[in-house]
């Protein structure tokens, strides 16, 4: 469970103070499939980064399973990212010199897994995201959609409690975007992993069961619906 209490974040650009988040209170239960929506500059990426321990709030608390992550050292945060949090980025951020298999292997370098177990996990997750035949391909030999599938596999391979996706479909065409969203939803149901993603795309919002709308650093709407279209 993720809980934020009165979360503020200010950025200082030159001499101007720019408030990105102005009092965010929310709760996301385990296994939710949540979109954080809003126009650019509304603070979605900032919120996601703070939840992902990549950034620190100026004021307020953020609790993950009851632990206030502000109080963690940078080592403790790295530990949390290593085991609990998977990231998917807008620009995929795969390492170009490595194959799909090797890219997915990277997070596992940090975990002490048996070689055989490691192999099984990587192959299984790549098959799950539909890339069973692309294991040996490098990023430049794959389409954007395929690359994002690798990124999703990379985020999920360590079996985290949550996956944070910052604009995962922004660099994809709408057909591919739909496929990626369907995949994420499927994985969310199957693995019971919490998925939180930011977007300004109506399509993405349609897929989510819960949409938190942000505007100027505040929550303006928190909408739930039973199930997204398939």
């Amino acid at each position: 469970m993720i809980e934020t209490r009165d979360l503020y974040k200010d950025y200082r650009i030159g001499k101007v103070l720019f408030p990105a988040l102005r009092g965010i209170d929310m709760r996301i239960e385990d296994g939710e499939f949540t979109a954080i929506a809003g126009p650019s500059g509304s603070g979605k990426t900032t919120l996601l980064n703070i939840i992902g321990c990549l950034d620190v709030p100026t004021k307020g608390k953020i609790l993950i399973d009851g632990t206030n992550i502000n109080e963690l050292s940078s080592k403790g945060k790295a530990e949390l990212r290593k085991t609990q949090i998977g990231f998917v980025f807008q620009t995929f951020n795969l390492i170009p010199v490595l194959t799909a298999y090797e890219n997915v292997e990277i997070p596992l370098i940090l975990l002490n897994l048996e070689l055989q177990k490691k192999k099984e996990r990587i192959v299984a997750i790549l098959e799950e995201v539909g890339l069973g035949d692309f294991i040996g391909r490098r990023p430049n030999e794959m389409s954007g959609g395929q690359q994002q599938r690798v990124a999703i596999a990379r985020a999920l391979v360590k079996e985290p409690t949550m996956v944070l996706a910052d604009e995962p479909t922004a660099n994809l065409d709408s057909t591919t975007a739909k496929e990626i969203l369907a995949l994420m939803q499927e994985l969310n149901e199957k693995h019971e992993t919490t998925f939180i993603f930011s977007t300004h795309d109506q399509l993405v919002m349609d897929y989510s069961r819960r949409t938190i709308n942000l505007r100027d650093g505040r929550i303006v709407e928190d909408k739930r619906k039973p199930k997204g279209p398939r």
């Binding site: 790295a78 290593k82 997070p107």
Partner: peptide, 16 residues
């Protein structure tokens, strides 16, 4: 540098 950021996001330590 973005790649370094990605690795850090995945929990890679500076020393690594």
């Amino acid at each position: 540098i973005p790649e370094i950021g990605t690795l850090k996001a995945m929990g890679f330590s500076n020393s690594r």
